[in-house]
Design a protein around this nucleic acid. Sequence first.
RNA 1: GGGCGCAUAGCUCAGUUGGUUAGAGCGCAGCCCUGAUAAGGCUGAGGUCCCAAGUUCGAGUCUUGGUGCGCCCA
Length: 1209
Amino acid sequence: MFPSIDKHETFPARELAVGKLWRDAEIYHKSLAARAEAPPFVFYEGPPTANGMPHPGHCLTRAIKDLFPRYKTMRGYRCERKAGWDTHGLPVEVEVCKELGIHSKEEIEAFGIEPFIQKCQQSVWRYMQEWRRLTERLGFWVDLDAAYVTYHQSYVESVWWSLKTLFDRGLLYRGHKIVWWWAQGGTALSAGEVGQGYRQVADPSVYVKFPLLDDDGNITDTSLLVWTTTPWTLPSNQFVAVNRYLQYITVRDEQSGEKLIIAGDLRKELEAKTKRTFISESTCSGRDLLERRYRPPFDSFWQQRTRSQWQYPDAHVYSQQEATSNFQVVSENETYEETQAIDLNRGQVFLDSHSPDNSWQVVLGDFVTTASGTGLVHIAPAFGEDDMRILERRRSLLEPDPPLINAVAPNGTFTDEGPEYCRGRWVKDCDKDIIRDLKQRGLLFHQEQYLHDYPFCWRAEQDPLIQYPRESWFIRTTEFKDQMLANNAKINWLPEHIRDGRFGKFLESNVDWALSRERYWGTPLPIWVCEETGQMEAIGSYDELIAKPQAAGMEVWDDAKKANPALPVDLRIHKPYIDAVTYESPFAQGARMRRVTEVIDCWYDSGAMPFAQWGYQGQERGPERDRFTAQFPADFISEALDQTRGWFYSQLAISTMLWGEKARVARRETRVGKTRNSELETQNYPHPFRNCIVLGLMLGEDGQKMSKSKRNYREPNEIFDKYGADALRWYLFANQPPWTSIRYSEEAIKDSIPEFLLRLWNVYSFFTIYANIDEFDPAQELVATRSDWSLKRPVQLSASELARAATYRPIAQRSELDRWVLSELNSTCATVVERMDVYDNFGACQAITTFVDGLSNWYVRRSRDRFWAKEKRSLDKLDAYWTLYECLITITKLSAPFVPFLAERLWQDLAVAIFGGRVAESVHLCEYPTGESAVVDRPLCEQMELVRLITSLGRQARNAAEIKVRQPLSKVEVILADSTHRGWLEEHAAVIADELNVKAVEFSDQPEKFVDHEVVPNFKLLGPKLGKLLPKLKGVLAKTNGSQLLAELRDSGQIGLEIEGQQVALTADEVEIRIQAKPGWASAHDKGVVVVLATEITAELLAEGLARDFIRVIQDERKNMGLAFTDRIAIGITTESAELQEAVVQWAEFIKKEVLSVQLGFEGQKVQTAIGQSSGPSPLEVSIHGIPAKLSIRRVELKENSSSGQSTS
RNA sequence: GGGCGCAUAGCUCAGUUGGUUAGAGCGCAGCCCUGAUAAGGCUGAGGUCCCAAGUUCGAGUCUUGGUGCGCCCA
């Protein structure tokens, strides 16, 4: 017996029980153990941070991350799922600061770095319980107990190893990063903080002349006209940028006669703005201006230009060949073009003593546009990211490096290198004086006000932020741009456009990775500096560090640990303990090596997880290496779109640098002087991940960003309690491709229950009810008939295993309905596998939904009377049971990765409950059904499709004619445009007749009576053949009598027409015959079918209709009375209508059979005496087909066989 | 300002390589069925496929431009 179903049990309650079963029986671990020898399917968990509450967006990522591993596991792969936690970084510090009520770094240091770090470490686990609960409740199978944690010593050391590797290859360097700087507070602000402080302000906008120099360094009569909104940056001017694609013109100002170079496109605008007239002198391209030298507007740096330390007699300039081999994109690249120009000018540049430092020249910048200004942009690398990037590029091309010109101190005031009247003053206050000065010296061409958004400090609203360079450590990722692009090109991105779109574009504009952070809670940058010489070493591990000569300072940790034994040992590799460790310098006698103070960007941590999760540190053998190589690269990862610049990038960048296909030695290697003969292996692209689903953003109920304060979403826990995890999962998987942004809607989640979960549950429920009544027990059928039925290995009830039961007949011998549903089942399996193999969960779900709909609304519906048949063990009935059982078992497995709880419950009830230990303990230990192509019968499916279409049209016609299905009719006429399936349909007319409640189905011999034929061209075939004649052909065909054309086609095999004087012959393939019902009939039509109802209702038909309505009324009442399906009743009826009386008498036996009535009494007004006590206090007043009647119904106890045999005679 | 994406029914969304009647679910209206049903089914109303131009015999689909929205970056 199958377990009976508790009607009041909810889906969430069932899920909780299933969750317990998984825990108790350790199913996840068993699913891995069962695949110990199987090929791996590698999954990487992108580590979330557990110091915030999980929200619905996390449900989506975690659901997708669960779906494919479950699927692949069932497909026979071993898919380990190691959890991970991202624990470092500013968000953690901010949380702790909130808790402490402090803000600034000064306050943190006053509080004490040591207790601060300890608080950070504790804060990391604040919401761990919530994360665990969500993960488990959602059914995300992941090994939380084996999670990697980014602050753990082994993880940090792994990161150190990779950084040391990069350092030794010369890929780590110190440089300047432009940050948004709060000068008054002396700290940099994060992007989020800056974003909060934008205000609209009016700033001066000035147009300044920069005189060009001739070859001898003398000022010429032509100036570059340069635009800026930050006059205070002019004293730090270093370059002027032009766009290489723009056209520039030299113009003469009619009034003053001075010559200016501006962008051609901006000439008119500038004339209007400055009310001047320009006379064109000549034009040139941006390229032609490249390397031209000019005199900057302020002198203090300019006067230093001949200082001896800035002269480099052995300067080396890269040749074109060298440059192109270093930068593989040969064409259309700024670097390439500048290299070329430098090369051409080589002699000139370096023989000219006036600009030995390579500043004050025209350079290229594609960010230069003609949207505003002059097309020539003032570049002060100290105060802009684009500007700094130009300096970096110049440095990569020229040796020695041009210095960074900066006349502003970190406190926001001018240094002594600023103009005299500015020294010591706040830069923004100097704008006016600078403008006045320029005007006096005749360099100011035009001045105006400019309204724009500018950021202010969110803590001190009066303080504008400035962009300012801070010393920072960089990874030379730009050296790997081509390799990263090549690696990226091989990744299977879903959606595809990420590869060349968002991610590809991001890679193409790659800049060196600013690695260091001047913060506290993070992986310490493992670089120790000689206090004497400034020379540096990278350290790969704690043991390596303390093994250094005369290493000291470890006692700081030891003391702390002694004082507080609860401190996790992982902290010893963090600030401040690690900073205390110093050792003897190998570079200078008696000097010490001390660690730099910075920690690193936590994105580097997460990007290192492919190896750091195993603590791999480049070992050539051993368990770490084995685990790493066995789980590299990942087959599958998935995160939301916001990770393109985050985890997706950090993983790809680190992996490419460490294991790129062509591990190119960095150009700067020799300069760093620390060449290491790298033995790193290279890996075929792509790595470290092959397939990546980029999820869309999840929005709240109102389509806006989810926000706690707006309360525009439900907490996941509420959803779980009300609808269940399966409902949420199905909603996420089945409603849209995962990369579209999803509106998280409670209603839509709720809807996934009736749409799929409940429909499947109802089919299951139907099956168990009748299987139990009929004592159909697949386990007994199998075991009883096959004594050799294997007990050695749990079986999975595949078709071939079921086939061993004596009563399981070969599919070919079963009814068409059975063959149809099994055909659909197997083709659905094939489709689902095909879709899932390309990571298309949406397509897979659609296929499953369609099948379950067909199973419920066609197979079960059409099969009901087979299950109600009197004979318990007739072949047909057993066929029906076996067929439905096989469908249920298969769909259970098929849906297991999607709705793991429901599937498990079905498996437990349909398989484990009756087979016990003979079957797999869990559905998730089963093989995934892939579909048996031999069972797929395409023609049969097409035919069934047509039957369903015809019945649908029949109902439509009934609806239009307002004749209920209950009322039998004499016949329908079916007219087919294409007679291919007619023969088959004639054989199966009974199904149609039954569905439509008609006595006969006829395939009309006189279609002309009911329909018009229309001949339409087959556009796909005729388009290429006829071209422009096609629309005319369409017109001609539409005007011609369809029946005639059809007759011609039938007789001669083709249709001959003349169009525009051309003879055209159309074959049967080249046209499509459509039919349309003629008006005046109760009919309905689709493209190729017309169904016509005979609407005449004879007395006989009417009587049957009355009887059927009578049955309906009684069935209603049975339900009202809460009777069991097998309960027998006695009925008494009172009516004055002779018509109804006659009908009931005539159809008495039929009625009794249909409603399981043992007695049907008729005694005028004295109903109750005829059948004894009635069900209700008084007879029921009813209306049967509009005729009033009174009814009494009473449940009858049967003496024997009361629980079986659901039919009476 | 730049990059990427999106725009189809009242709402949420599908829509294959371009093929001539653009679909589903929800909601609404009407009806049916009920011996699996927190049910299910049928039918209907509801569309300028954002706008414009182009390519083509043919465009929701391809191209270009525009508009609006979202995300990322500046």
